[in-house]
Each structure stands twice: as structure tokens, then as C-alpha cells.
Nucleic acid binder design. Structure first.
Length: 607
RNA sequence: GCGCCCGUAGCUCAGUUGGAUAGAGCGUUGGCCUCCGGAGCCAAAGGUCAGAGGUUCGAAUCCUCUCGGGCGCGCCA
């Protein structure tokens, strides 16, 4: 929060103290609604009415009378029962033209896991939402002063991967390079499932799939999985996602972490092996203390045949993330798309990742129960504080033109397809709007990909979104390109200022008009919004703010006087005022750029 | 059946630690380029904030119930 807002709050607290109110309630400071007098105000008088046994307007009057306002306050007055402040316009413009102070570094590492797609086919738009949310949140947290570690979990011992690899073998396919590798594998996977609709075939395949699964667990097929993963990574990279480390499930099993986790759990009174009944021979965990309201609180960790359930693996992985288990090994993961990417690997020599006090698992809402059992696992071993730090960022699923998608049936839209289409559309818009563009292909890539990313995060995670081409690939209205356009427009002015040799002109802030004030107030919200988005783990709040900021700027830009002339020309303004406007535009541009970066969009200078 | 989530303008969504007149976009209608980028701006029309009770000076926001929709409840992954 900008310093001056805290000063206002302090002044209110001071007035309350002068009135003999020692325990002041939290001071809410809000911008006054349009059409009301003043710039900021507080409703604090309402909440004191009961304790003071006085009418709110009267209390507000007393507060206003007792208040020693900071020097930038022009006027303190009461509207209804609100205590309002009118701020010196020059002061607001000046503060808004200064770059915001960086966030102080906060202690404690936060580990964000996102993307984590099964390495057996191409990415579809459901994965897209996961990646965009996780990547944006990681960026926001880092900007807000957290140490962030981003992890992409590679489920290389899962059934999906086994089925895909088996399909390649069964159909005896040879890759000819005519399409992206993960798409080619995905086709084989869908084809296999089509054949498996015949129960006889399904039964016939089962043994082979099991065999493939065992080879995967032994790490024998790592290269085959890696080939798919690398193809997936191309798509992730095109979207701008950045990871610190890839963690392979087979490594977790091989390094004995699963076994250690089970030992750990079995020592507690909540985990045991029934000798009779429905769970005879299995290792089960009683979660009734930690997950109330379950009909059957018993969860199987190890099946009676000795194999581990998914729950068990999840708990082991979570324990490792939070430092309860150690022993994974790492090495660099050379790749053409991203520097300093690491991977878990047998025989790796690097110090360990993980060991975080706080984790964020970006996983869809259907996995809420499994995620609760992961937390329960931490409670079972007596680590309540770690369970508290384990956050499930649950997002609702993505529909496709109103229909539920299905990976097995191949009713999906691939991310590659969406990005190609978006960029193609962007290219034609660039050609139309800006035929002189020096690098139309680069601009189309930034705009097209930006439109898709923005569409994925502008809505709250817990709402189901319906993916519609028409909407997601729109470049008008509340879209990423709208924000990018606002940035390009500001850049254009600053470029011209440089050409005209006026960019260094000093600012006389006493000349600021109400137009500047309006823009300044929106600009000044930026640090609070970032803080809130980080705290609530809600990237959409930042996306929504960027739309507000871009709208405020476009509105400012187009403002007209009563006789229809431009009211806010930057370059054509008088000397001192031009300096004010240039300073504001400069900070606006930087703020848009920073904000776009935090939600993973490029900020084009020209588009 | 039990549990979690959602219901705001014709459509898609913001606004939810309770605060001033519920806001955007799309769509509809009407305006704005001799002016720094019209991917823009201004304006109009459009609302029982699913419904009913309750708490409160004040409720889209908190509580209870009802209705509608989504999802989850395997020794599957």
C-alpha cells in the first residue's frame, strides 16, 4: 500500500486516540465513489456508533475536527457519516508517477506444483488452465517477495503413459516427423482405447499394459517417456511457463521415499493392517480425526497385493515437498527451451530441492478429496503446521463449447491447435491494423498467445469456464490484447517524446488536472492488488485490475473538453504539464508491463 | 444418500475479511478520427444480485432453509 494511504489511516487513528478511543477498529480506507466529493474516505464512524452511543454523523464530525491531516490533504470533511479526504492533485500525480517500492523479501520458501500432465499425449485446454494459473501465481508470489520453487511432476509410472507406450508397440508405429511427436503418440493412445471398447481386446491388452507398467517403474522406458515430455515442454515454453525442476515419480519410488513414508505412517496409531474384514491384508489409514463426515474414513495405502495406491504416492511426495523425507537426487536437464532447468535423476549430484514450509498444488477441483487425504497424511504424522501450509489451488474444469472433454475419446482441443489458431488470427489483425509493422510475426505470437493466457486467468479459479474459440481468441473488450494495446499506445507516445527531444522535460505537478488525478488513483492501486492476489492466491484479481488500468488509461487518452477538443494531449501540452503527463505515462507503461509479466503476457512496444 | 463448489444484465463474467448510487465485456441502438495508434472512447437501453427467512445502523457479501446446476464419494489412475 502506498505510504500516503497509511498516513491517512494513521491520522484517523490519531484522531480516535484524541477522542479517548484507545482500541481503534481497523481503518478501512476506500476511494470515494464517482460523483462524491473527495478522493478517499473511511466509514469508521459507523462501527463506533454502538460503543460511543452516538449517531454516526456526529462521530464523523468529531473525528474530522480532531484530525491532524498530513500536509498533502487539502480538506477533511464529512459526507453522511463518512470522513472524506480531498488530496492535493499535484501530490497524487507526483506519487503516481513514482515507481512503486519493491516488496520486502519474506521468509520461507513456497513450492508451487503445476502443469504435471501425464506424459502420454499432447496438452489440451484443461491443462492450459492449470499451467496459466500456476505459472501466473508463481510469478506473483515471487514479485511479492516470496522465495518460490516451481515444480512440474512427471507421472511416468502411471497407467496413461503405459498405455501410450504399449500402443506404439502394439500398432508397430514408426515416427516420421510429419507432426508434433506428442500428437502422434496421442493418436496411438486414442486408437488403443477405441480397440479397448471391445471387452475381449481389453482383456487381451491388460497383461501387456501391466508389463509396460512394471518396466516403467523400473525406469527402463525413461527415454521413451522423455521424448514425449520434451515435446510437451515445447508447448509449455511457448506459453511462457517456467519451471525450476521436473520430479519423476519413478525416482520417488526408486529412491525409497514411498517405503520411508509408509514406515513413517505405520508407526502412528492411525495406520494399521487389518487382519480381517474388507481391508484384510492392506495397509490402511484412519482419517476420521482429520476429515469429518466421511462414511468410510479408511483409506488404503498399500493394497493387499503389496502395491501402492495413488494416495500413498501423493502423501509420500507431499512429505518430500515439505522436508519430512529426503533423498531425491538432481541434475541439470539440458534442453533447448529453458535455462537452469533441473530434473530428478538416479545418480544425480545436486543438492535437493523441496523442503518447503508452504506448498501450493495446482490441481483441478475433482481432486479435492484426494488432496484432503494428503493433508490428513501430514496430520497423521503429527505435523499440523505443515498440513496448514499445504494449499490446494482447486480450479474447475474447462468445458469445450459447452461439453465435457474426454482425453480417452479424443474429444479435446489441443493447446498447440489453439495457439496456432490464435496466432493466425492475430497475424491477420496485425496486417490489417498495422501494415507497416517491422516484425508482424513476433507481434502476432505475443498477441495470440497473450489472448489465450489472459482468457484462462481472468476468471476466478473456482468457476467452471467454457472454452469457446470465438471468445478466447477475441482481441477486443476485456482481453489480454486490450491491455497490450494500452501498453503499446503508451510506448508510442514515449517514443515520440524521445524523437522530439522532450522526454527529459521537468514536471510541474502543481499543474495536474482532475484527468491526471483519476488515472493516478487507479495506478496507485497496483501494489495493493499484487499483495492481495498473492495472499489470496488469486491471479484473476491482477488480470481484472489490468483491465481497469488499461481502461482508465484509454479513457484518459480519449478525454475531450466540452467543445470536443482533446483534453489530455501529452506531447502537445504546455511545458510543465507535459512533464507531468510524460512522467505519468512512463510509470503507467511500466506498471502495465510489470502487470502483464506477472500474468505471463508479453508487453509489445508496437503491435 | 453424504460432502464440496457454483447461481449477479439476453450471453460471458467482476464485485464476497459487511459500507456511499451493484460494475465490465459481448450483443443491440446512437455518437466520436483536419488531434499523441479507432485492437480505442462517449452515451442509451438492459438487474426481484436464484427464492424465502434471519443478523446488522447498513447484506450481492454473514447465518438458516428451499430450488436449480456442477463435481466428488473404489484394494481405478
Amino acid at each position: 500500500m502506498p505510504h500516503f494511504k497509511n498516513q491517512l489511516k494513521t491520522a484517523v487513528t490519531g484522531a480516535l486516540a484524541a477522542m479517548g478511543i484507545a482500541e481503534a477498529p481497523e481503518i478501512v480506507l476506500q476511494e470515494t465513489p464517482e460523483g462524491k466529493e473527495g478522493d478517499y474516505g473511511t466509514p469508521v464512524a459507523f462501527s463506533l456508533a454502538k460503543a460511543l452511543r452516538k449517531a454516526p454523523p456526529q462521530i464523523a464530525g468529531e473525528i474530522a475536527a480532531q484530525l491532524c491531516p498530513p500536509e498533502f490533504v487539502k480538506r477533511v470533511f464529512v459526507v453522511g457519516a463518512y470522513v472524506n479526504f480531498e488530496i492535493d492533485p499535484g501530490y497524487l500525480a507526483k506519487v503516481a508517477a513514482e515507481p512503486p517500492a519493491p516488496f520486502p523479501q519474506k521468509p520461507g520458501k513456497v513450492l508451487v506444483e503445476h502443469t504435471s500432465v501425464n506424459p502420454n499425449k499432447e496438452l489440451h485446454v484443461g491443462h492450459l488452465r492449470n499451467l496459466c494459473l500456476g505459472d501466473s501465481l508463481a510469478r506473483i508470489l515471487a514479485f511479492a517477495g516470496r522465495e518460490v520453487e516451481v515444480m512440474n511432476y512427471i507421472d511416468d509410472t502411471g497407467r496413461q503413459a503405459a498405455e501410450s507406450l504399449f500402443a506404439l508397440e502394439y500398432f508397430n508405429l514408426e515416427y516420421d516427423g510429419s507432426q508434433k511427436y506428442d500428437h502422434w503418440v496421442g493418436e496411438a493412445y486414442v486408437r488403443l482405447h477405441k480397440e479397448m471398447e471391445d471387452p475381449a481386446k481389453k482383456a487381451e491388452f491388460e497383461a501387456k499394459i501391466q508389463e509396460t507398467l512394471h518396466r516403467l517403474e523400473a525406469g527402463e522406458l525413461r527415454d521413451a517417456v522423455d521424448k514425449i515430455l520434451r515435446s510437451n515442454l515445447e508447448t509449455m515454453h511457448r506459453l511462457g511457463a517456467r519451471y525450476d525442476v521436473l520430479v519423476w515419480e519413478s525416482d520417488i519410488v526408486r529412491e525409497g521415499l514411498l517405503a520411508k513414508a509408509m514406515d513413517f505412517l505405520e508407526k502412528t496409531p492411525y495406520v494399521f493392517r487389518p487382519t480381517e474384514g474388507k481391508y484384510a491384508g492392506a495397509l490402511v489409514m484412519n482419517t476420521s480425526q482429520f476429515i469429518p463426515g466421511l462414511e468410510d474414513p479408511y483409506l488404503v495405502l498399500l493394497r493387499s497385493n503389496g502395491t501402492a495406491t495413488y494416495t500413498a504416492k501423493d502423501i509420500a511426495f507431499q512429505m518430500w515437498k515439505m522436508g519430512l523425507l529426503r533423498g531425491l537426487r538432481f541434475k541439470p536437464y539440458p534442453n533447448p527451451v529453458q535455462d537452469r532447468l533441473y530434473t530428478s535423476a538416479p545418480g544425480g549430484e545436486l543438492p535437493e530441492f523441496g523442503g518447503a514450509a508452504e506448498t501450493i498444488n495446482v490441481i483441478d477441483a475433482r481432486q479435492s478429496h484426494p488432496q484432503m487425504t494428503v493433508k490428513a497424511g501430514l496430520e497423521v504424522v503429527g505435523r499440523h503446521e505443515l498440513a496448514e501450509g499445504a494449499y490446494h489451488l482447486a480450479y474447475e474444469t474447462v468445458l469445450l463449447e459447452g461439453r465435457q472433454m474426454s482425453g480417452r475419446k479424443g474429444i479435446t482441443v489441443s493447446v498447440d491447435e489453439v495457439l496456432d489458431e490464435a496466432v493466425k488470427r492475430a497475424k491477420s489483425v496485425v496486417a490489417e491494423k498495422n501494415p507497416e509493422h517491422p516484425d508482424p510475426d513476433a507481434a502476432a505470437e505475443q498477441v495470440g498467445v497473450g489472448a489465450v493466457r489472459f482468457a484462462m486467468i481472468k476468471t476466478e479459479a473456482r468457476k467452471q469456464i467454457d472454452f469457446r474459440y470465438q471468445q478466447a481468441l477475441s482481441f477486443e473488450g476485456d482481453t489480454g490484447p486490450y491491455v497490450q494495446y494500452a501498453h503499446a499506445r503508451a510506448s508510442s507516445i514515449l517514443r515520440k517524446a524521445l524523437e522530439q527531444g522532450v522526454s527529459g522535460e521537468p514536471a510541474d505537478f502543481s499543474l495536474a488536472t482532475p484527468y491526471e488525478v483519476q488515472l493516478a488513483k487507479v495506478l496507485l492501486r497496483f501494489p495493493e492488488v499484487v499483495q492481495e492476489a498473492a495472499q489470496e492466491k488469486a491471479p484473476h484479481q491482477l488480470a481484472q485490475y489490468l483491465l481497469d488500468l488499461a481502461a482508465a488509461w484509454n479513457s484518459y487518452y480519449n478525454a475531450k473538453t466540452a467543445d470536443g477538443r482533446t483534453a489530455t494531449a501529452v506531447l502537445a501540452a504546455g511545458p510543465g504539464l507535459r512533464g507531468v503527463r510524460l512522467a505519468l505515462v512512463r510509470n503507467l507503461k511500466e506498471t502495465l508491463k510489470t502487470g502483464l509479466g506477472l500474468v505471463g503476457l508479453e508487453a509489445p512496444e508496437v503491435m
